[in-house]
């Protein structure tokens, strides 16, 4: 059924902290690794180490440069399906294969009924859906629906693979429909925002803004002074201190 359900109270989604993300791609590779064996398995992967790699990825990490009058900043920018509240990617689907779950708001493609017409990918402004030419069906982020409710894996693993993999803690998973959840509180505290809010699909996933350094390049910075370790007065310490001074003076 591709008509949208009544908005659910539970809105599962991700919060991505652009201030922390370092663009390491761990979430993207981990996503691919889990999902090529998961709900939408397999994810096509052609010539992965060759000259012309191609394939379906559900999470992609861009890097942008943000420039102000005085400074530029690199922002690593993970982008995946935002599990929107009012997305046309669901309503345009002729088969009902593209649907939004009434119970938790996850947007999924049923790989058994999708005819591969690609219309849903045309309706997504975020470029979040990728057609799998091998399978002939559309692939997209499932929010790891096969992990988060999976009772056969340890409880601490019941989060999306990307969240589990992120080494910096830039990704958080939770219920954005609950204003008291940790993710919602963090979004409120950090001025979390929607991507392309103007478009009106009402994404569930939120992004936290990068902070600009308080130091800008036109400020003159004091030369870093090297801390001189206090000597304990022993002969060997004095020798090292003398060698160090002698070498520094030459350098």
């Amino acid at each position: 059924m591709t008509s949208l359900p009544q908005p659910s109270d539970v809105k599962l989604g991700l919060v991505i902290d652009l201030d922390i993300c370092v663009g390491c791609q761990a979430c993207a590779t981990s996503c691919k690794e889990w999902n090529t064996g998961g709900y939408s398995a397999p994810l096509s992967d052609h010539d992965p180490y060759g000259a012309d790699p191609s394939g379906a990825w559900l999470n992609r990490i861009h890097a942008y440069e943000v420039t102000t009058d005085t400074a530029s900043k690199t922002v690593h920018f993970p982008r995946s399906c935002l599990h929107c509240e009012k997305p046309d990617c669901v309503t345009v689907c002729p088969t009902g294969a593209s649907y939004k779950r009434a119970e938790d708001g996850i947007v999924l493609v049923n790989p058994d009924t999708c005819i591969g017409c690609k219309l849903c990918s045309w309706a997504c402004p975020y470029g979040a859906r990728e057609y799998d030419h091998d399978d002939g069906v559309m692939k997209k982020c499932t929010l790891c629906v096969d992990r988060i409710y999976n009772e056969t894996i340890p409880e601490e693993d019941r989060v999306p693979a990307c969240v589990k993999a992120c080494p910096t803690g830039a990704r958080a998973f939770g219920d954005l429909g609950d204003p008291d959840s940790a993710v919602s509180r963090n979004v409120a505290a950090r001025d979390g925002f929607n991507l392309l809010d103007e478009f009106g699909y009402e994404p569930v996933n939120k992004y936290l803004p990068p902070r600009f350094n308080s130091v800008t390049p036109d400020q003159v910075l004091p030369a870093p002074s090297e801390p001189v370790p206090a000597s304990n007065g022993s002969a060997i310490e004095n020798l090292f201190a003398w060698v160090d001074r002698a070498l520094s003076a030459k350098g």
């Binding site: 861009h62 890097a63 943000v66 925002f193 991507l195 600009f212």
Partner: peptide
Amino acid sequence: TGLGHLGTVRPLDPPHSMPNFV
């Protein structure tokens, strides 16, 4: 990108080395 309040935005690195489906 939602980064407009910080400045102008230009792509630095694409997420992959070759064009994807999108």
